[in-house]
Design a binder for these strands. Structure first.
Lengths: 340, 340
DNA sequence: CTGAAAGCGCTTACAG
DNA sequence: CTGAAAGCGCTTACAG
């Protein structure tokens, strides 16, 4: 059973392949009768235009790719799938073709970003999970193809980015802790190289300074977004600084590590120690106690990223190449007023 | 900046495009000198063969797709991402092209499976998340293109499937409960339409019968893989049958609902009620208490599915079109000996 | 409103 | 070992 092509449809309908092509591309100057006939035949033959042929011959740019870096590593938090849903939904609504291209840091060294994008005639790409020290970071600025980054801000002609306002979100989270009477608040931050790390730290500092509290550098630690490292660091902090009453963690995964450390040392959450997370991954609500955290809608981030990207592709005018997606605080049961 | 094509490379290297093509396709009858020259030029020009053109002109079949049904719905359990990793890894290792095609039940009614597959020149597809009442189920058997299904067994010429041995796994899980002295064990099963539901129930029955225990149909409920429904059903069961001491749940998500119901009714896990799950999703180990469950390696399932698929594509001889992937019991803290 | 034809970037017999 | 050329399935000016 050979797959049916435009030729088959043309022959059966008694028209030229050009005409078939025109009805499938929504040209308006087609006789109503021929249009109906072609559509009918196409349906009977289960015909659907071959995308390879289409993208080869067409000059329209309608291929949007999502590059997912280090799929496996981001698995636990499951944020990638949400971003994927968002990007995919946008491509569906706007009739772009969607391509998923999983990559790894290792692969980045072997094959340039350009090559990946050219191979598939990609008109623009959303990149998720990239780190600021990844090889592609240097390539993105000079890319002739528009790129929108999730969670990383970068300079470039057709480069954009999408994220929550990380600084503001961190500011609000820490302010919430402060409003509960906490003053000695540790910051368990992510990898120093991550853009979000810098912003979230800025938010923490700003909140502390607004309350005119002294910044204690020893309470700021970088745990590489790792549950284990966060656990170890929290253990250390709790032992060395018994006046500590709260932790602000730059990811829920790290908050899990912190919670484990608190329990291990025999303190209670939230009576003695409050813990605040970031992300609101699925896990957060199932922890015990359920984790107070910053909720960010990763699906919306994906959707907005694709939307911004499409504006680059369509060469629309762009006032601001960075878009902020709304976040919110979700207060559950790991935060409580400081004990007197 | 026009993207560089085979012509550019040919011109710069002073050879024909046929020759360039041959070096990129690993032909062996190429002069060593020309090969090196071509590769060098290609690298300088950031050339990488266009996949659309390649798949259009080549008769080799090397495009493997993963169709992910109802992406959003399966999000919480996060199994899809693991299957994706597995399929992708296999395509990488074996040098197939990987395509992700997200679909929904709604889309299945609009566009046939054939159309999806033809559009992208897919040589074979792994399908994950399909339900036995989905429209595509009827199409798969007659598909001229090989299909491998995750978790669903289906007849067909080039149709295969991959899963854990669900019956055996359920048998082992229930046997474990029995070995702890439990006799009145409820089964919270999935959607009746799911293949895994049937197999897991068979395992439950077999374990009960092996111990010559009476089957109590009122203790077998179908909760549609839903946390909420499982919660409600468990509440009901606990109220009506106080002699119940254990639950075997056909998914961790449902086990979460059951655990909630047990707590709600004021009983303790595992002292008074034991709970056994299925899947071992990330969440399972973070629940309190951590959930005893059947561990299945979804990544391996994806990998094996792609592997089986490739054998269909390459027309290798296939003795058994269904492959079982190993599972194991992970006993954590929701199961305990029945109180005397 | 529709057809004929060039062209997209490749692969692959066919010759030599 | 390599070139010339047909062909994959489309789109899209160009004519009429």
């Amino acid at each position: 059973m050979k797959k049916t092509t435009i030729k088959d449809v043309a022959k059966h309908a008694g028209v030229s392949i050009g005409t078939v092509s025109r009805v499938f591309n929504g040209y308006t100057d087609i006789g109503e009768a021929t249009k109906i006939k072609v559509l009918k035949i196409a349906d009977e033959l289960e015909y659907s235009p071959n995308l390879s042929a289409r993208s080869l011959s067409s000059k329209k740019k309608r291929n949007i790719a999502l590059l997912l870096n280090n799929l496996e590593l981001n698995n636990k938090a499951n944020l990638s799938m949400d971003v994927l849903s968002g990007v995919y939904q946008y491509t569906l609504e706007m009739d772009f073709e969607f391509f998923l291209i999983p990559i790894t840091t290792a692969q980045q060294k072997e094959k340039s970003l350009q090559k990946f994008l050219n191979e598939r005639d990609i008109s623009g790409a959303v990149i998720q999970g990239l780190r600021t020290d990844d090889p592609y970071i240097k390539e993105i600025g000079k890319s002739p193809i528009p790129i929108v980054l999730v969670d990383i801000e970068l300079e470039g002609d057709h480069v954009g980015s999408v994220s929550v306002d990380n600084e503001l979100a961190a500011y609000e989270a820490v302010s919430h802790l402060l409003s509960l009477g906490h003053e000695n608040i540790a910051l368990i931050n992510g990898r120093k190289e991550a853009n979000v790390t810098v912003r979230r730290e800025a938010g923490y500092l700003k909140a502390m300074e607004t309350k005119q509290l002294e910044i204690r550098p020893e309470l700021i630690q970088y745990a590489n977004f790792s549950e284990e490292i966060a656990y170890i660091m929290a253990l250390d902090l709790l032992r060395n600084y018994p006046d500590l009453t709260a932790f602000f963690c730059a990811s829920d995964i790290m908050a899990i590590g912190v919670m484990k450390a608190v329990k291990e040392i025999g303190k209670t959450i939230p009576e003695e120690i409050s813990v605040f997370g970031f992300d609101d991954i699925t896990l957060a609500q199932y922890l015990s106690p359920p984790l107070s955290t910053v909720t960010q809608d990763m699906k919306d981030i994906g959707y907005q990223a694709a939307k911004l990207l499409s504006r680059f592709i369509l060469k629309e005018e762009i006032k601001d190449s960075h878009v902020f997606v709304p976040h919110s605080l979700t207060i559950r049961e790991t935060t409580k007023e400081r004990a007197k």
